[in-house]
Design a protein around this nucleic acid. Structure first.
Lengths: 232, 232
DNA sequence: CGTCGTCTTGACCAAAGTCAACGCACGTGG
DNA sequence: CCACGTGCGTTGACTTTGGTCAAGACGACG
């Protein structure tokens, strides 16, 4: 069983040995996706739900004018498309930002879990609701905060979520994302992201080098980003 | 039974007479909320879920610096806080933008419905997932679209959702929202909203007067707002 | 060693914000 | 019934934030 998934679910609703055994049985063979490839695409009608076990994926929407907006980052342990189970057709795409590994759960198997394993079901619904909370927070971030706060906030969120699944190592974590992509996540141009990153570094809050993000002043970063993890 | 709720659920997953009877029995006494009052507040731990039967409410988050972001509009027929059922504590507030009427369903009653009435349950989960899709679209809207498109897009969305619950009358619907509030929804200053509204009017797309929004060119508005209802 | 993608920098530009004043409609109280 | 206050919409002048464009540096990799 993927370790991240374990930590994640334990936090949402403690599960029994038996629950985990059930999950393990329901998970299909690992699928690998190369960086910059789509995991799923807008318009797809998947027949499975996917669990991200390794890597970083970006959920995004492509606009007609060519721009794109990343609407969330997904980290290991995330059930990455519960909507496909309920809604069928996807309204957005998900792209691998790094090489990824995912494991599917067929929709029937998912139905079975929801029907017969209430503890897992509750954990899953909690996850869905928290995802929604994350989207709301992103609306706030992009809608109201200036560039500096905006970036600080995203870093806090990702760090916090990675900590839950034990993917933070000390004050640093793997975050091999270009400034272009960062810009697409926070609604800024790559150039502006660049300048703001320099300010964040000058203020001894974070540095981003060689695909790893190091947080030098966690408290300061939270303050700068107006970050409160209550929504997570 | 509230008519909007009926139309809404029929669209999400057709229900039987019996399902509706169950719902009707589960709904508590109507609660009235005056305009500008909060329906629920951040930090609350409600013991009921609420169905909006009349009026318009804005889901919002207040920032420490005093600004606020409206993250969605809720229209009649909406189950307005399913998260309270799953998560307990609210991460945001909901304010009545107009006088509102709401009917509660206690959490135990909700549990009962989800356990024993799979058709209703499915409709509800679809609604939850569509809400999430709306949040995603708002991230896109606020993150990538210029002011003019942004406003056009929100108008399209609200119109579309009101149409579903039969609250559009011809090309117009009640939308008694100040330009200040509109700005809080799309991440613009009230002054800028004002100027853009004038352009929208000059372009014969919409007019907003006396609390009603009239759409003069539905096709044009959709194009201007880069609106595609696939996510709803 | 050269190429490609990303980061960096500078000069300039445009969208949207801010501030302040004024108009207008509505409601309240004298 | 009028005078005034209040909230909202409107306008203008000015500022700021962030966008765009273009060029150069840097670094990984074939």
């Amino acid at each position: 069983m993927a370790k991240s998934l374990f930590h994640k679910l334990q936090r949402l609703n403690p599960l029994t040995e038996d629950d985990f055994a059930t999950l393990e049985r329901s998970l299909g063979a690992t699928r690998q996706v190369r960086a910059d490839e789509d995991v799923v695409s807008e318009g797809d009608r998947p027949t499975t739900c996917l669990v991200l076990t390794d890597g970083l994926v970006g959920r995004y929407k492509q606009l007609r004018n060519g721009r794109r907006q990343i609407v969330s980052f997904q980290v290991p342990g995330d059930f990455v498309d519960m909507h496909s189970f309920v809604l069928g057709r996807l309204d957005h795409s998900m792209g691998a930002l790094t090489p990824c590994r995912l494991r599917p759960i067929s929709h029937p198997a998912m139905q079975d879990i929801l029907d017969k394993h209430p503890r897992i079901a509750l954990a899953l619904w909690r996850e869905v609701m928290i995802d929604a909370a994350v989207f709301r927070e992103w609306v706030v971030n992009v809608g109201q905060r200036p560039a500096y706060e905006r970036l600080a906030h995203v870093f806090c969120e990702v760090a916090y979520r990675l900590k839950v699944v034990q993917q933070m190592h000390g004050d640093r974590f793997a975050f091999p994302v270009t400034q272009e992509e960062l810009g697409q996540a926070v609604g800024l141009s790559a150039v502006h992201v660049n300048r703001v990153m320099q300010r964040l570094k000058a203020d001894h809050l974070v540095t981003h080098r060689a695909g790893v993000l190091a947080i030098h002043d966690w408290q300061g970063l939270q303050t700068a980003g107006d970050f409160d993890p209550a929504y997570l």
